[in-house]
Nucleic acid binder design. Sequence first.
DNA 1: GAGCACTGC
Length: 680
Amino acid sequence: MSTLKPKFLKPETDDAITDSAGHEEAAATSFVFNTNHNLGLQEQRERLPIRKYRDQILYCLEHHQVLILVGETGSGKSTQVPQYLYEWGWHTKGLIGITEPRRVATLTLANRVAEERGELIGATVGYVVRFMERFTAETHIKFMTEGILLRELLADPLLTQYGVIIVDEAHERNMLTDLLLGLLKKILRKRSNLKLIISSATIDASFFAEFFSWPGADQPISIKLTIEGRMHEVNHYYVNEPCADYVRETVETAWKLHQREPPGDILAFLTGQDEVLEARDLLQEYIASTETANLKVLPMYGSMSSTDQLSVFFTAPKGMRKVVLATNIAETSLTIPGIVYVIDSGYVKLKCFNPSTCSDSLVIVPVSKASAIQRAGRAGRLRPGKIFHLYTRQDYDALAPRQPPELRRSELSAAVLQLKALGIKNILRFDFPSPPPAKNLLAALELLYALNALDVDGELTQPVGYLLAELPFSAMLSKMLFVSGQLGCAEEIITIIAMLQVQSVFSRPASAAAQQMGRIAHRHFEVAEGDLVTLLNVHSAFVEAGMTKEFCGQYYLIYRNLKRACELREQLLNLIRRKYGIAIFSCKGDVELLCKCITAGFFTQVAYLHHSGVYRQISSGVELAIHPNSTLYTLPAAKYIVYGELLQTTKLFMNQVTVIRQEWLTELAPHYYQQTTVRD
DNA sequence: GAGCACTGC
């Protein structure tokens, strides 16, 4: 093997991985902790801790169908194992496929492996993600996102092209990971020549081993990879008595720490913005009560503007200690330098699907052991650190090992469509790694039946069911798009869908004055029909103004998200033109037609105005409120509205609200509404 | 009058 170190990214490949978002992500989830950076690439490979497991991995794969690789991120397994397999000749038995949960990691890993091999990407090593691929006839090592492999299953249900599949980061237990693992189990039973490698954190290894055991099969084998010198030691401290108010306790602990401990910054984990700001104010009071104010308090949460977020990354002035009060954003998403002490409140906010109202609840729950360990790790990056858990040692021992996997707490219509499209007849009996509650599955089946995607026997319908299974949006959005093709306004509906796929385009500044200015600016786009048509207006105005940053500044819009929506819109238009027979016409300003399309997608989520002045869910009579972020919050209440999502916090709040007429319900969804009498 | 954090086809 050569040890040359050329730079071989094609220009377009380079583009793909050097967009700014990509770099942040690559830095955050970096898989190299590289003390050998001045050595040749092959020499570096030889020195990786994983190298000494190579023969063992290859031997085990010869003798077992399933191999579970245990080792935290940083062991080099994502880049090395595919190469070991290739060098040993596994590629002669089919493709070596590696699935990743995220796009950026997919591109980064593929590029890294190609570079180590001294090749161009798209030769032996390639990747496929949505809208982008470097994959040729010579490619033997294929990195891809999980969604891509799931889509490939539709065309090739036994994955006959593949000889080995590596599911990377399986411990994250995303919805797609779990679907994939369930389906791979079925395939392994039919294809004894297919091998599966699951890369997992320690905590889940035995779980996966058990899931992939069945009568007559050889038992999965686990290999534990050790990683050297990654972290400093962190000492754990617990409270003796449970504390009544963890926000106050956080503040007091931070203050005591500051008095007693040698220099080093403090990071505290709370559950939400309110708590972070409350803790900040309390801590400021402590500081104000002393003469030496050598403590700098910094809040950190998701809805802060990116410039405000930046301030936590600066070192505190000389002689000062920094205290960062953060939500879960600091647990995995970003790494704050200089942290030596961590305070763990013991709680986290978690989103959970509630099938009885088809809403999501945002609830405060105790953290899992995995989270507590992750939080502790934040103290050991610089030098040996300390973590202070605001709960007792007994409470720690009683914590759940991990948070329930996403599939168990999510709306499942997309998952059900996918499984149905793969010919799984009885979804309730499908072998999920962790089966979701039956009620959640039934809610999804009922919704899909109402949308006419499933027939009475639970089979996908033609064309609606198959279309909804194929389109990369939620079932309701896809149905809306389907109807818009028939009614002649798909162009506008695609814009709305693209705008709904990105994070909010409305900027909400931190200061009260700026917030007020923002609200006034946003009125410019608001219409009485509601939030979805308002999004369409924002898009049109942005395009008309030449898609400039200045326009976004003037109207308090987030340029990055808006630009992304425009790109997505183009890609979706291409996709729909190319693959699906949806006619793309403009309604040319006929807003009523748009609202009808919206109704055709969201008719199961209707609220009517009760004479008492509150909204009620039409199906259940449950009381609902319009979310204060909605356009319709300040406008006179309409009699009937549809909503895009329902979130339970202090109340059941409706988001993405659109005004409709009652008669549209019987016109557009007669099968659903003919029997319903509206309570008034 | 209210906003845990992400990601994917």
